[in-house]
Design a binder for these strands. Structure first.
Length: 103
DNA sequence: GGGGTGACCCAGT
DNA sequence: TACTGGGCCACCC
């Protein structure tokens, strides 16, 4: 596996800061990094997580609709429920108290 | 430098 | 509620 690029590093740094029991969407991450770096998009964040996400709390990153990463639904749901994240059916309940934004 | 590839998003149907 | 099409953009040939 190739080393993370500069943009990938900024994504990983942010994901590492998400507290237990809270989540961010790919779109939120893209918006935050675009404010700070002027780069990125939700799709690019997804690509970064697919390639480099294994070393960070990737289960705290979900789609804007609360869907879990393809191929890792069971693991993600197990970890999130253990942290107290509420579910509605198969997806995370994307309500204010669970969404996190960096201070 | 040009084209393909996504762990996305949103509006429309 | 579920699916589609268009837009998106860093990264890798």
């Amino acid at each position: 596996m190739n080393p993370p690029t500069e943009y990938a590093e900024s994504v990983l740094d942010l994901v590492e800061r998400i507290p237990p029991g809270r989540v961010m969407s790919y779109g939120m991450i893209a918006e935050y990094l675009r404010e700070r770096t002027g780069r990125g998009s939700p799709r690019t964040v997804g690509t970064v997580m697919a390639r480099y996400g294994s070393g960070v709390p990737w289960h705290r990153v979900v789609s804007g609709a609360g869907r879990l990463p393809p191929g890792h639904e069971q693991t993600a749901r197990q970890r999130l429920e253990a942290e107290g994240v509420p579910f509605r059916g198969q997806h995370v309940l994307m309500a204010d108290p669970v969404l996190w934004w960096p201070e």
